[in-house]
Design a binder for these strands. Structure first.
Lengths: 223, 223
DNA sequence: GTCTATAGTCGGATAGAC
DNA sequence: GTCTATCCGACTATAGAC
Protein backbone atom coordinates (compact mmCIF):
# COMPACT_ATOMS: atom_id res chain seq x y z
CA UNK A 1 0.00 0.00 0.00
CA UNK A 2 2.52 2.60 1.12
CA UNK A 3 5.27 3.56 -1.28
CA UNK A 4 8.93 2.93 -0.56
CA UNK A 5 10.32 6.39 -0.25
CA UNK A 6 9.14 8.70 2.51
CA UNK A 7 8.53 11.58 0.17
CA UNK A 8 5.99 9.69 -1.91
CA UNK A 9 4.43 8.17 1.19
CA UNK A 10 3.91 11.64 2.60
CA UNK A 11 2.33 13.00 -0.57
CA UNK A 12 -0.05 10.09 -0.95
CA UNK A 13 -1.04 10.17 2.69
CA UNK A 14 -1.52 13.92 2.50
CA UNK A 15 -3.72 13.54 -0.56
CA UNK A 16 -5.96 11.22 1.46
CA UNK A 17 -6.05 13.26 4.63
CA UNK A 18 -6.27 16.75 3.16
CA UNK A 19 -9.08 15.39 1.01
CA UNK A 20 -11.02 13.79 3.82
CA UNK A 21 -10.51 16.61 6.30
CA UNK A 22 -9.39 20.03 5.14
CA UNK A 23 -5.96 21.60 5.40
CA UNK A 24 -6.75 22.91 8.86
CA UNK A 25 -8.37 19.65 9.85
CA UNK A 26 -5.15 17.68 9.51
CA UNK A 27 -2.15 17.94 11.80
CA UNK A 28 1.43 17.27 10.88
CA UNK A 29 1.51 14.54 13.54
CA UNK A 30 -1.40 12.75 11.91
CA UNK A 31 0.32 12.97 8.54
CA UNK A 32 3.63 11.65 9.81
CA UNK A 33 2.01 8.84 11.74
CA UNK A 34 -0.13 7.60 8.85
CA UNK A 35 2.69 7.92 6.35
CA UNK A 36 4.96 6.10 8.78
CA UNK A 37 7.60 8.77 8.60
CA UNK A 38 9.13 10.93 11.24
CA UNK A 39 7.51 14.24 12.02
CA UNK A 40 10.64 16.10 10.97
CA UNK A 41 10.46 14.58 7.49
CA UNK A 42 7.76 17.08 6.52
CA UNK A 43 10.11 19.95 7.05
CA UNK A 44 12.98 18.08 5.46
CA UNK A 45 11.17 17.27 2.20
CA UNK A 46 8.64 20.06 1.85
CA UNK A 47 9.77 22.84 4.15
CA UNK A 48 6.43 23.07 5.91
CA UNK A 49 2.87 21.79 6.06
CA UNK A 50 1.97 24.32 3.36
CA UNK A 51 4.78 23.05 1.19
CA UNK A 52 3.40 19.54 1.47
CA UNK A 53 -0.05 20.82 0.54
CA UNK A 54 1.30 22.47 -2.60
CA UNK A 55 3.11 19.25 -3.49
CA UNK A 56 -0.23 17.49 -3.17
CA UNK A 57 -1.75 19.97 -5.63
CA UNK A 58 1.02 19.20 -8.10
CA UNK A 59 0.42 15.51 -7.58
CA UNK A 60 -3.24 16.01 -8.41
CA UNK A 61 -2.30 17.80 -11.62
CA UNK A 62 -0.07 14.86 -12.55
CA UNK A 63 -2.77 12.28 -11.77
CA UNK A 64 -5.40 14.15 -13.72
CA UNK A 65 -2.95 14.56 -16.55
CA UNK A 66 -2.37 10.81 -16.78
CA UNK A 67 -6.09 10.36 -16.59
CA UNK A 68 -7.25 12.92 -19.10
CA UNK A 69 -4.09 13.65 -21.05
CA UNK A 70 -4.44 11.09 -23.83
CA UNK A 71 -8.12 11.83 -24.37
CA UNK A 72 -7.63 15.57 -24.35
CA UNK A 73 -4.73 15.29 -26.77
CA UNK A 74 -6.86 13.28 -29.16
CA UNK A 75 -9.64 15.84 -29.07
CA UNK A 76 -7.22 18.74 -29.33
CA UNK A 77 -5.73 17.12 -32.41
CA UNK A 78 -9.16 16.90 -33.99
CA UNK A 79 -9.78 20.55 -33.11
CA UNK A 80 -6.45 21.67 -34.59
CA UNK A 81 -6.95 19.56 -37.71
CA UNK A 82 -9.98 21.76 -38.26
CA UNK A 83 -13.04 21.01 -40.34
CA UNK A 84 -14.80 19.11 -37.60
CA UNK A 85 -18.49 18.98 -38.41
CA UNK A 86 -21.09 19.89 -35.80
CA UNK A 87 -22.00 16.25 -35.58
CA UNK A 88 -18.41 15.12 -35.05
CA UNK A 89 -17.86 17.80 -32.44
CA UNK A 90 -21.01 16.77 -30.64
CA UNK A 91 -19.94 13.15 -30.60
CA UNK A 92 -16.50 14.03 -29.26
CA UNK A 93 -18.12 16.09 -26.53
CA UNK A 94 -20.42 13.20 -25.62
CA UNK A 95 -17.52 10.78 -25.44
CA UNK A 96 -15.58 13.11 -23.19
CA UNK A 97 -18.51 13.63 -20.84
CA UNK A 98 -19.32 9.94 -20.75
CA UNK A 99 -15.74 9.35 -19.76
CA UNK A 100 -16.11 11.81 -16.88
CA UNK A 101 -19.24 10.11 -15.68
CA UNK A 102 -18.20 6.50 -15.96
CA UNK A 103 -14.66 7.07 -14.72
CA UNK A 104 -14.45 10.17 -12.59
CA UNK A 105 -17.49 9.34 -10.51
CA UNK A 106 -16.69 5.68 -10.27
CA UNK A 107 -13.18 5.64 -8.89
CA UNK A 108 -12.92 6.11 -5.16
CA UNK A 109 -9.45 7.62 -5.63
CA UNK A 110 -10.85 10.50 -7.60
CA UNK A 111 -12.97 11.46 -4.61
CA UNK A 112 -9.79 12.49 -2.81
CA UNK A 113 -8.78 14.92 -5.50
CA UNK A 114 -12.22 16.27 -6.00
CA UNK A 115 -12.72 17.37 -2.42
CA UNK A 116 -9.45 19.25 -2.47
CA UNK A 117 -10.32 20.81 -5.82
CA UNK A 118 -13.73 22.00 -4.71
CA UNK A 119 -12.40 23.38 -1.46
CA UNK A 120 -9.93 25.35 -3.51
CA UNK A 121 -12.80 26.61 -5.66
CA UNK A 122 -14.64 27.87 -2.59
CA UNK A 123 -11.57 29.29 -0.84
CA UNK A 124 -8.67 29.52 -3.26
CA UNK A 125 -5.13 29.40 -1.93
CA UNK A 126 -1.84 29.28 -3.75
CA UNK A 127 -2.71 25.69 -4.67
CA UNK A 128 -5.57 26.90 -6.84
CA UNK A 129 -3.13 28.43 -9.31
CA UNK A 130 -1.40 25.08 -9.65
CA UNK A 131 -4.69 23.28 -10.26
CA UNK A 132 -6.09 25.92 -12.58
CA UNK A 133 -3.05 26.15 -14.83
CA UNK A 134 -2.37 22.44 -14.51
CA UNK A 135 -5.57 21.06 -15.92
CA UNK A 136 -8.64 23.27 -15.47
CA UNK A 137 -7.71 25.81 -18.07
CA UNK A 138 -6.57 23.25 -20.68
CA UNK A 139 -9.71 21.17 -20.13
CA UNK A 140 -11.94 24.20 -20.45
CA UNK A 141 -10.19 25.22 -23.67
CA UNK A 142 -10.97 21.85 -25.23
CA UNK A 143 -14.59 22.03 -24.17
CA UNK A 144 -14.92 25.60 -25.43
CA UNK A 145 -13.54 24.48 -28.78
CA UNK A 146 -16.01 21.63 -29.11
CA UNK A 147 -19.07 23.61 -28.06
CA UNK A 148 -18.03 26.54 -30.24
CA UNK A 149 -18.09 24.24 -33.26
CA UNK A 150 -21.39 22.71 -32.27
CA UNK A 151 -23.18 26.02 -31.96
CA UNK A 152 -21.22 27.73 -34.71
CA UNK A 153 -19.70 30.48 -32.65
CA UNK A 154 -16.29 31.62 -31.52
CA UNK A 155 -14.40 29.86 -28.71
CA UNK A 156 -14.25 32.97 -26.59
CA UNK A 157 -17.93 33.74 -27.00
CA UNK A 158 -19.58 34.26 -23.62
CA UNK A 159 -22.53 32.07 -24.48
CA UNK A 160 -20.24 29.22 -25.49
CA UNK A 161 -18.36 29.43 -22.21
CA UNK A 162 -21.45 29.63 -20.05
CA UNK A 163 -22.88 26.69 -21.95
CA UNK A 164 -19.75 24.68 -21.13
CA UNK A 165 -19.91 25.59 -17.45
CA UNK A 166 -23.58 24.73 -17.18
CA UNK A 167 -23.04 21.38 -18.88
CA UNK A 168 -20.11 20.52 -16.66
CA UNK A 169 -22.26 21.51 -13.70
CA UNK A 170 -24.65 18.72 -14.53
CA UNK A 171 -21.88 16.22 -13.96
CA UNK A 172 -20.07 18.00 -11.15
CA UNK A 173 -23.19 18.10 -9.05
CA UNK A 174 -22.85 14.38 -8.51
CA UNK A 175 -19.43 15.01 -6.99
CA UNK A 176 -20.27 18.17 -5.17
CA UNK A 177 -23.56 17.21 -3.57
CA UNK A 178 -23.01 13.52 -3.00
CA UNK A 179 -24.47 13.54 0.48
CA UNK A 180 -27.90 14.85 -0.40
CA UNK A 181 -28.07 12.87 -3.64
CA UNK A 182 -27.13 9.60 -1.98
CA UNK A 183 -29.48 10.25 0.90
CA UNK A 184 -32.38 11.12 -1.36
CA UNK A 185 -31.88 8.13 -3.63
CA UNK A 186 -30.81 5.69 -0.93
CA UNK A 187 -27.55 5.08 -2.73
CA UNK A 188 -24.61 4.16 -0.57
CA UNK A 189 -22.13 4.70 -3.37
CA UNK A 190 -21.95 5.08 -7.10
CA UNK A 191 -21.96 1.70 -8.89
CA UNK A 192 -22.19 0.73 -12.57
CA UNK A 193 -26.01 0.75 -12.50
CA UNK A 194 -26.16 4.17 -10.90
CA UNK A 195 -23.64 5.56 -13.30
CA UNK A 196 -25.48 4.19 -16.31
CA UNK A 197 -28.66 5.92 -15.13
CA UNK A 198 -26.77 9.17 -14.66
CA UNK A 199 -25.13 8.79 -18.06
CA UNK A 200 -28.50 8.33 -19.76
CA UNK A 201 -29.99 11.44 -18.23
CA UNK A 202 -26.97 13.62 -18.99
CA UNK A 203 -26.76 12.38 -22.58
CA UNK A 204 -30.45 12.99 -23.02
CA UNK A 205 -30.03 16.51 -21.64
CA UNK A 206 -27.13 17.11 -24.02
CA UNK A 207 -29.20 16.04 -26.98
CA UNK A 208 -31.91 18.43 -25.96
CA UNK A 209 -29.58 21.32 -25.24
CA UNK A 210 -27.96 21.11 -28.66
CA UNK A 211 -30.97 19.93 -30.62
CA UNK A 212 -31.50 23.37 -32.16
CA UNK A 213 -27.84 23.77 -33.05
CA UNK A 214 -27.48 20.47 -34.81
CA UNK A 215 -29.77 19.35 -37.55
CA UNK A 216 -32.24 17.47 -35.48
CA UNK A 217 -30.00 14.42 -35.59
CA UNK A 218 -29.73 12.58 -32.30
CA UNK A 219 -26.85 10.18 -32.51
CA UNK A 220 -25.99 9.75 -28.85
CA UNK A 221 -27.52 6.71 -27.27
CA UNK A 222 -29.65 7.83 -24.41
CA UNK A 223 -30.73 4.40 -23.32
CA UNK B 1 -23.98 46.12 11.87
CA UNK B 2 -23.70 43.88 14.92
CA UNK B 3 -26.89 42.87 16.70
CA UNK B 4 -27.70 43.88 20.26
CA UNK B 5 -27.64 40.61 22.10
CA UNK B 6 -24.44 38.60 22.31
CA UNK B 7 -26.13 35.38 21.24
CA UNK B 8 -27.21 36.80 17.88
CA UNK B 9 -23.91 38.56 17.42
CA UNK B 10 -22.12 35.27 17.89
CA UNK B 11 -24.30 33.40 15.42
CA UNK B 12 -23.98 36.03 12.72
CA UNK B 13 -20.25 36.33 13.18
CA UNK B 14 -19.92 32.56 13.14
CA UNK B 15 -21.92 32.37 9.92
CA UNK B 16 -19.40 34.73 8.34
CA UNK B 17 -16.28 33.11 9.68
CA UNK B 18 -17.26 29.45 9.34
CA UNK B 19 -18.28 30.28 5.79
CA UNK B 20 -15.10 32.06 4.87
CA UNK B 21 -12.76 29.64 6.61
CA UNK B 22 -13.96 26.21 7.65
CA UNK B 23 -14.92 24.97 11.09
CA UNK B 24 -11.32 24.04 11.80
CA UNK B 25 -10.08 27.25 10.27
CA UNK B 26 -11.77 29.41 12.87
CA UNK B 27 -10.77 29.71 16.52
CA UNK B 28 -13.07 30.53 19.38
CA UNK B 29 -10.89 33.52 20.14
CA UNK B 30 -11.40 34.87 16.63
CA UNK B 31 -15.15 34.38 16.97
CA UNK B 32 -15.36 36.12 20.31
CA UNK B 33 -13.22 39.03 19.20
CA UNK B 34 -15.16 39.70 16.00
CA UNK B 35 -18.52 39.30 17.70
CA UNK B 36 -17.30 41.60 20.46
CA UNK B 37 -18.27 39.16 23.16
CA UNK B 38 -16.26 37.49 25.84
CA UNK B 39 -14.64 34.18 25.05
CA UNK B 40 -16.63 32.47 27.77
CA UNK B 41 -19.89 33.50 26.12
CA UNK B 42 -19.52 30.70 23.58
CA UNK B 43 -19.69 28.11 26.29
CA UNK B 44 -22.40 29.98 28.11
CA UNK B 45 -24.79 30.24 25.14
CA UNK B 46 -23.90 27.23 23.02
CA UNK B 47 -22.00 24.85 25.24
CA UNK B 48 -19.07 24.57 22.87
CA UNK B 49 -17.68 25.58 19.50
CA UNK B 50 -19.59 22.65 17.96
CA UNK B 51 -22.78 23.87 19.58
CA UNK B 52 -22.29 27.26 17.98
CA UNK B 53 -21.71 25.60 14.63
CA UNK B 54 -24.98 23.70 14.88
CA UNK B 55 -26.76 26.91 15.82
CA UNK B 56 -25.35 28.41 12.65
CA UNK B 57 -26.81 25.54 10.64
CA UNK B 58 -30.22 26.22 12.17
CA UNK B 59 -29.82 29.88 11.35
CA UNK B 60 -29.12 28.98 7.73
CA UNK B 61 -32.29 26.90 7.63
CA UNK B 62 -34.24 29.87 8.96
CA UNK B 63 -32.72 32.30 6.47
CA UNK B 64 -33.33 29.98 3.55
CA UNK B 65 -36.86 29.43 4.78
CA UNK B 66 -37.58 33.15 4.77
CA UNK B 67 -36.02 33.32 1.36
CA UNK B 68 -37.66 30.36 -0.33
CA UNK B 69 -40.61 29.65 1.92
CA UNK B 70 -43.26 31.82 0.24
CA UNK B 71 -42.26 30.70 -3.25
CA UNK B 72 -42.11 27.04 -2.33
CA UNK B 73 -45.47 27.27 -0.63
CA UNK B 74 -47.03 28.77 -3.73
CA UNK B 75 -45.67 26.03 -5.93
CA UNK B 76 -46.59 23.31 -3.44
CA UNK B 77 -50.12 24.66 -3.43
CA UNK B 78 -50.28 24.39 -7.20
CA UNK B 79 -48.93 20.84 -6.98
CA UNK B 80 -51.46 19.83 -4.35
CA UNK B 81 -54.32 21.45 -6.23
CA UNK B 82 -53.47 18.98 -8.96
CA UNK B 83 -54.24 19.21 -12.65
CA UNK B 84 -51.21 21.27 -13.47
CA UNK B 85 -50.54 20.99 -17.16
CA UNK B 86 -47.07 20.22 -18.46
CA UNK B 87 -46.82 23.76 -19.68
CA UNK B 88 -47.81 25.25 -16.33
CA UNK B 89 -45.40 22.98 -14.49
CA UNK B 90 -42.62 23.96 -16.84
CA UNK B 91 -43.31 27.63 -16.31
CA UNK B 92 -43.34 27.21 -12.53
CA UNK B 93 -40.01 25.38 -12.75
CA UNK B 94 -38.54 28.16 -14.87
CA UNK B 95 -39.70 30.81 -12.44
CA UNK B 96 -38.18 28.95 -9.52
CA UNK B 97 -34.85 28.48 -11.26
CA UNK B 98 -34.77 32.08 -12.44
CA UNK B 99 -35.28 33.08 -8.84
CA UNK B 100 -32.30 30.98 -7.80
CA UNK B 101 -30.13 32.56 -10.46
CA UNK B 102 -31.10 36.17 -10.04
CA UNK B 103 -31.27 36.06 -6.24
CA UNK B 104 -29.12 33.29 -4.87
CA UNK B 105 -26.11 34.12 -6.99
CA UNK B 106 -26.52 37.84 -6.62
CA UNK B 107 -26.60 38.34 -2.89
CA UNK B 108 -23.23 38.35 -1.17
CA UNK B 109 -24.88 37.09 2.02
CA UNK B 110 -25.90 33.89 0.37
CA UNK B 111 -22.26 33.15 -0.35
CA UNK B 112 -21.75 32.60 3.37
CA UNK B 113 -24.42 29.93 3.61
CA UNK B 114 -23.43 28.28 0.41
CA UNK B 115 -19.87 27.61 1.43
CA UNK B 116 -21.00 26.00 4.63
CA UNK B 117 -23.62 23.97 2.80
CA UNK B 118 -21.19 22.67 0.20
CA UNK B 119 -18.59 21.81 2.80
CA UNK B 120 -21.26 19.79 4.56
CA UNK B 121 -22.03 18.06 1.29
CA UNK B 122 -18.41 17.04 0.90
CA UNK B 123 -17.84 16.10 4.54
CA UNK B 124 -21.17 15.81 6.34
CA UNK B 125 -21.32 16.40 10.08
CA UNK B 126 -24.28 16.55 12.41
CA UNK B 127 -25.08 19.91 10.83
CA UNK B 128 -25.88 18.22 7.53
CA UNK B 129 -28.96 16.60 9.04
CA UNK B 130 -30.22 20.00 10.07
CA UNK B 131 -29.67 21.43 6.61
CA UNK B 132 -31.04 18.42 4.78
CA UNK B 133 -34.25 18.17 6.76
CA UNK B 134 -34.54 21.93 7.05
CA UNK B 135 -34.71 22.86 3.41
CA UNK B 136 -32.94 20.49 1.04
CA UNK B 137 -35.48 17.70 1.23
CA UNK B 138 -38.52 20.02 0.97
CA UNK B 139 -36.99 21.87 -1.96
CA UNK B 140 -36.15 18.64 -3.77
CA UNK B 141 -39.69 17.39 -3.24
CA UNK B 142 -41.12 20.44 -4.95
CA UNK B 143 -38.73 20.10 -7.86
CA UNK B 144 -39.47 16.38 -8.19
CA UNK B 145 -43.16 17.19 -8.33
CA UNK B 146 -42.75 19.75 -11.07
CA UNK B 147 -40.44 17.68 -13.24
CA UNK B 148 -42.60 14.59 -12.76
CA UNK B 149 -45.53 16.48 -14.22
CA UNK B 150 -43.47 17.85 -17.07
CA UNK B 151 -42.21 14.46 -18.19
CA UNK B 152 -45.37 12.59 -17.21
CA UNK B 153 -43.82 10.27 -14.69
CA UNK B 154 -44.02 9.57 -10.99
CA UNK B 155 -42.31 11.81 -8.44
CA UNK B 156 -40.16 9.00 -7.09
CA UNK B 157 -39.06 7.90 -10.52
CA UNK B 158 -35.28 7.65 -10.72
CA UNK B 159 -35.11 9.47 -14.02
CA UNK B 160 -37.16 12.35 -12.65
CA UNK B 161 -34.84 12.72 -9.69
CA UNK B 162 -31.65 12.53 -11.68
CA UNK B 163 -33.10 15.09 -14.06
CA UNK B 164 -33.72 17.43 -11.14
CA UNK B 165 -30.20 16.98 -9.78
CA UNK B 166 -28.62 17.55 -13.17
CA UNK B 167 -30.65 20.69 -13.72
CA UNK B 168 -29.81 22.06 -10.30
CA UNK B 169 -26.19 21.27 -11.06
CA UNK B 170 -26.27 23.72 -13.93
CA UNK B 171 -27.01 26.49 -11.46
CA UNK B 172 -24.99 25.24 -8.54
CA UNK B 173 -21.84 25.15 -10.59
CA UNK B 174 -21.79 28.94 -10.53
CA UNK B 175 -21.67 28.78 -6.75
CA UNK B 176 -19.40 25.81 -6.44
CA UNK B 177 -16.74 26.69 -8.98
CA UNK B 178 -16.74 30.46 -8.72
CA UNK B 179 -12.97 30.76 -8.75
CA UNK B 180 -12.36 29.06 -12.06
CA UNK B 181 -15.43 30.61 -13.68
CA UNK B 182 -14.54 34.12 -12.62
CA UNK B 183 -10.93 33.65 -13.60
CA UNK B 184 -11.83 32.26 -17.01
CA UNK B 185 -14.35 34.98 -17.78
CA UNK B 186 -12.48 37.81 -16.08
CA UNK B 187 -15.44 38.45 -13.84
CA UNK B 188 -14.68 39.88 -10.44
CA UNK B 189 -18.15 39.20 -9.15
CA UNK B 190 -21.64 38.39 -10.34
CA UNK B 191 -23.55 41.49 -11.42
CA UNK B 192 -26.91 41.98 -13.14
CA UNK B 193 -25.39 41.65 -16.62
CA UNK B 194 -23.56 38.45 -15.73
CA UNK B 195 -26.63 36.98 -14.15
CA UNK B 196 -28.77 37.80 -17.14
CA UNK B 197 -26.33 35.98 -19.41
CA UNK B 198 -26.36 32.98 -17.10
CA UNK B 199 -30.14 33.05 -16.91
CA UNK B 200 -30.44 33.03 -20.70
CA UNK B 201 -28.20 30.03 -21.10
CA UNK B 202 -29.89 28.03 -18.34
CA UNK B 203 -33.37 28.83 -19.66
CA UNK B 204 -32.29 27.87 -23.13
CA UNK B 205 -30.90 24.59 -21.79
CA UNK B 206 -34.15 23.95 -19.95
CA UNK B 207 -36.16 24.47 -23.10
CA UNK B 208 -33.99 21.99 -24.92
CA UNK B 209 -33.98 19.41 -22.15
CA UNK B 210 -37.76 19.35 -21.95
CA UNK B 211 -38.51 20.01 -25.60
CA UNK B 212 -39.40 16.36 -26.22
CA UNK B 213 -41.60 16.15 -23.15
CA UNK B 214 -43.63 19.23 -23.89
CA UNK B 215 -45.35 19.79 -27.16
CA UNK B 216 -42.65 21.70 -28.90
CA UNK B 217 -43.88 24.90 -27.28
CA UNK B 218 -41.13 27.17 -26.03
CA UNK B 219 -42.63 29.75 -23.73
CA UNK B 220 -39.61 30.70 -21.64
CA UNK B 221 -37.83 33.78 -22.84
CA UNK B 222 -34.28 32.89 -23.61
CA UNK B 223 -33.22 36.32 -24.61
C1' DG C 1 18.82 11.39 5.78
C1' DT C 2 16.56 10.09 9.88
C1' DC C 3 15.49 10.55 14.40
C1' DT C 4 14.43 12.44 19.45
C1' DA C 5 13.43 16.12 22.16
C1' DT C 6 11.69 20.37 22.92
C1' DA C 7 10.79 25.24 22.18
C1' DG C 8 7.18 28.38 21.61
C1' DT C 9 2.55 29.19 20.26
C1' DC C 10 -2.21 28.65 20.15
C1' DG C 11 -6.18 25.80 20.68
C1' DG C 12 -10.84 24.85 23.46
C1' DA C 13 -12.59 24.73 27.79
C1' DT C 14 -13.61 26.33 32.40
C1' DA C 15 -13.19 27.93 37.42
C1' DG C 16 -14.49 31.46 40.07
C1' DA C 17 -14.92 36.64 41.02
C1' DC C 18 -18.32 40.16 40.39
C1' DG D 1 -24.86 37.16 32.67
C1' DT D 2 -20.35 38.81 32.00
C1' DC D 3 -15.62 38.85 32.69
C1' DT D 4 -10.56 37.66 33.94
C1' DA D 5 -7.30 34.36 34.49
C1' DT D 6 -5.68 30.08 33.70
C1' DC D 7 -5.34 25.07 32.76
C1' DC D 8 -3.67 21.81 29.79
C1' DG D 9 -3.43 19.51 25.64
C1' DA D 10 -2.19 19.96 20.70
C1' DC D 11 -0.12 22.39 17.32
C1' DT D 12 3.95 23.71 13.93
C1' DA D 13 8.52 24.22 13.62
C1' DT D 14 13.22 23.28 14.62
C1' DA D 15 17.65 22.34 17.02
C1' DG D 16 20.91 19.01 17.37
C1' DA D 17 22.39 13.98 18.06
C1' DC D 18 23.45 10.10 15.20
Amino acid sequence: MLADDPRTRLIETALDLFGQYSFDGVSTRMLAERAEVNLAAIKYYFGSKEGLYLAVAEQIVQHVGQFLGPRMAKVQESLDGDELTKEESFNLLCELLEFFITRLLALPETGKWLKIIFREQLCPTQAFDILFDGFMRPLDQVLFGLVARIVGRNEDDLEVRLRVFSIMGQIQVFNVSPSSIKRTLNWDQYNPDNLEAIRCVIMDNLNGIFSMSRNGVCSAQTR
